[in-house]
């Protein structure tokens, strides 16, 4: 068994339910705790966590359930963010328009690139999603009217029917939390639905699925579009959180980080994507506070996780524990 293969099909167990409830309650309480510390910093850090959790959920949906290892998902975040920025540059800042537009643009990109990526599989799929991600990155960099490589600042955060809903950092926080919860429960429903059953089956044995009558390609493409749309949602939120958009949002390292978040939290669990995003970004903060060369620690840590821990951070902790108790 490898990391790609959780031993059992995902089921709703009491333990999962408790973990999920704990995660969302904890996230809901963060702003209250933040009031006692560096409130602005903590809130913006956790908004980032939640935004990337949404994107990581999409990646877990593709990798963990569809067996489609995407190495270009940051492109969708970028597309969503750029849609907000470009609309803003033209004076459109109302999310009643920009949010559906951001989702539509990324879904469309997913549909077109998915049509090509999904004709291939395995390592081809990895490389092609990587290449398309890079394409989006370079296009963004060549958009001279919208800042080119330097990126572009948003005129203001989005409004909803003229109402400045994101004016307050707390409001932005809770809206983001709401979207995260929505994304989580949506994907969970999809995974267990008829569609999700076909999507999961296609990962296990596409030939089999075809011979019992499913057009695997079309199901996978729908899955890819769903994941792309969620990436766009994350991008919409990220643009509002940072009030700034740049091609760096789409860099291939970002796409790699999304995969790492999912691996951190445990592949094919959905809630693991949230845990993974949080532990990745918090670990980054901690290591970065410890030394500016934190990547010298982080890189080897990834290698160690792959070599010694099957099953993410949780697996690493368990295997270390096992060694300690044995020793």
């Amino acid at each position: 068994m490898s990391m790609l293969a959780p031993a059992m099909p995902v089921r709703r167990s009491a333990r999962t339910e408790i973990a999920v409830a704990a995660i969302f309650i904890a996230l809901a309480l963060v702003p209250f705790a933040a009031a006692y510390g560096a409130q602005g910093y903590i809130l913006s850090l956790f908004v980032r966590v939640m935004v990337f959790a949404i994107a990581a959920l999409a990646v877990d949906f593709l990798c963990g359930f569809g067996g489609l290892i995407t190495f270009g998902h940051a492109a969708f975040i970028g597309l969503g963010a750029y849609t907000v920025a470009i609309a803003g540059a033209h004076g459109v800042t109302d999310m009643a328009i920009t949010l559906p537009l951001a989702i539509l643009v990324s879904a469309l990109f997913a549909y077109v690139t998915g049509t090509i990526c999904l004709r291939t599989s395995g390592v081809y799929f990895i490389m092609i999603t990587l290449a398309f991600g890079q394409m989006a990155y370079f296009i963004a960099g060549s958009l001279a009217p919208y800042g080119g490589d330097d990126g572009i600042t948003l005129p203001a955060r989005s409004t909803l029917f003229g109402l400045a809903v994101f004016k307050d950092d707390r409001a932005l926080y809770y809206v983001t939390l709401g979207f995260l919860a929505g994304a989580y429960f949506l994907l969970r429903a999809v995974v267990y639905s008829r569609f999700g059953r076909v999507f999961r089956g296609a990962r296990e044995n596409p030939t089999r699925m075809a011979t019992i009558g499913f057009d695997v390609f079309r199901y996978q493409r729908i899955g890819y579009v769903i994941a792309g749309a969620l990436g766009g949602l994350a991008g919409f939120l990220l643009a509002n959180a940072t009030e700034f958009v740049s091609p760096a949002y789409m860099s291939w390292q970002r796409s790699g980080e999304l995969i790492i978040m999912v691996i951190f939290g445990g592949l094919g669990t959905l809630y693991g994507a949230i845990v993974g995003a949080a532990s990745f970004l918090l670990l980054e903060e901690v290591l970065a506070g410890f030394t500016e060369n934190w990547k010298l620690i982080f890189g080897p840590l990834l290698v160690l996780i792959v070599l010694f821990a099957r099953g993410g951070m949780v697996g690493l902790v368990t295997s270390i524990k096992a060694r300690l108790t044995r020793g």
């Binding site: 290892i69 990895i126 990547k295 080897p300």
Partner: peptide, 25 residues
């Protein structure tokens, strides 16, 4: 050497870790 018989996802992550390390190093 320890990655040859692993799946592609694991190879991607481990070698990605090496990139992060070497770029910084």
């Amino acid at each position: 050497r320890h990655l040859y018989d692993r799946d592609h996802l694991e190879q991607v992550i481990a070698t990605f870790g090496i990139i992060i390390f070497l770029n910084q190093a």
